Computed example of a mutant assay.
Amino acid sequence: MRIEISSSGIRMTNVPDKEGLSDERVYYVYEWYIKEDGRVFYIGKGKNNRYKQDKNSFFMDVKQAFDCDVRFVEKGLTEYEALVLEEELFARRESDGHVLTNINTPNTSGVFGTPVDYEYMTTPQVEVTRIDQEYFGIEQKKFDKISIDALLKTYIYKMTCYGLGNLYFKNEEKEFIQQQICEKRINELSQEVKDFIESRGGRLYRSKAKSIKSIIIYGGLLHDSYQQYKDEGLEVYHLIDVLKYIREH
């Protein structure tokens, strides 16, 4: 990723300098679309049979759910020309309202859209990608309501604390909270949960054992992961909801 300055303004780009790129005019830019309504869901560049190859999981979800086809936007390009056109097409299609399954799309919204802005001790919602919303009609939902029976056999899912500072610290100036400090805070809160559960004859498991009835998340969670846990028969709680439940009981 680099910054490119031109007469039209400043933009971020993934396109490298021409040096080192192929001058052979064997490259093309292509796009996958849904036949029924023409929605474009993937843009790429390549040569030979690259356009036929499967892409990421978001691409595969859409491709398998709809009747789709692929078309060439332009052929006979150098590698640099193809990269430039590919990026320009990202912005053009997004501007026209198409939602792309490409992971890396400079100057566009991307699969995940705007990052979640956490608020102090406020439970976030289960997140959905722009793909979930656009193609499958999935909306954000709340974490599950606490059931004491499921809470007494639970497991806290270990994840990175990066970016969670605002969730667990009062930080009006939005200063960066180091991950080590955040981890220490999570450990303290986890101990509070453990003490509560054990005082009522339950168990906080160290790993995802077969006998657990719920799982506790302390950061964000995508809908696909939420649904996977539900399919496994688990209740899915957020640590903040669990702490509020504990303090009320």
Rank of each mutant, 00 (worst) to 15 (best):
E79T: 07
V99H: 00
V73F: 12
Y155V: 01
G76D: 14
E74K: 15
P124K: 01
P115N: 05
R92F: 13
T129S: 14
F72S: 11
N107K: 05
R93N: 08
F72G: 08
Y80H: 15
L151W: 02
I156P: 00
A150N: 04
F136S: 03
Q125V: 05
P115A: 03
E86G: 00
M121N: 05
F112E: 13
Y155G: 01
L77G: 00
S95D: 09
Y155M: 04
S147G: 09
N104I: 12
R93E: 08
I138A: 08
Y120I: 10
Q140L: 12
G76E: 14
N107F: 04
N104M: 15
V84F: 04
D117G: 03
R92P: 06
I146H: 02
L152K: 11
P124Q: 05
S109W: 11
L151N: 04
G97P: 12
S95L: 08
G137I: 09
E79I: 06
T105N: 08
V128S: 08
E81A: 00
R130H: 07
A82H: 01
L100E: 09
I138S: 09
V73H: 13
K142N: 15
T154Q: 00
S147E: 13
V128G: 05
Y118E: 06
A150Q: 01
F136K: 01
D149M: 06
H98A: 05
E79L: 10
K75P: 03
G113K: 09
E94S: 12
F72I: 15
V128L: 04
T114L: 14
E88W: 07
L89V: 10
T123S: 03
I131R: 11
D117P: 03
E86L: 02
K145E: 10
L89C: 11
Q125M: 13
P106I: 11
Y118R: 13
